[in-house]
């Protein structure tokens, strides 16, 4: 599981997750995700390269998203594959964090 960040125009922090967000993958990114969430105001979580998402992985996304939102920030989930999106929808998290497949739409969502 790889994680990298990129600062985009407009104060957006793009965090790119790459790999499997299973229990091991979630453990591998948790610390960095929480560090990023500690300072990001507009967080774009790029899921395009996430091949798998389990409930532990879901938690690794929800917890930092909650931290950003609790400070008045915004979060968007970007470009999950069909199965990953199905996990997001089954959990209901898509109703609380917007999911966008178009980068412009994702950026617009962050305000």
């Amino acid at each position: 599981m790889q994680i990298s960040t990129e600062e985009m125009p407009g104060g957006i922090t793009r965090v790119v997750l790459d790999g499997r967000m299973d229990i091991a993958g979630a453990a591998a990114v948790d610390l960095k995700m929480n560090l990023i969430a500690g300072s990001a105001k507009k967080l774009l979580v790029d899921l395009e390269k996430v091949a798998f998402l389990g409930s532990m992985g879901l938690r690794s996304i929800v917890t930092p998203a909650r931290a950003v939102k609790s400070r008045g920030g915004t979060v968007v989930l970007f470009a999950p594959n069909e199965m990953v999106e199905s996990v997001l929808k089954t959990s209901g998290i898509d109703t609380l964090i917007p999911v966008r497949h178009d980068l412009d739409a994702a950026i617009a969502e962050l305000g």
């Binding site: 939102k69 089954t90 209901g92």
Partner: peptide, 9 residues
């Protein structure tokens, strides 16, 4: 069915 929670918190 998904949870009917109003907020992420």
């Amino acid at each position: 069915p998904a949870p009917a929670t109003a907020s992420l918190q």
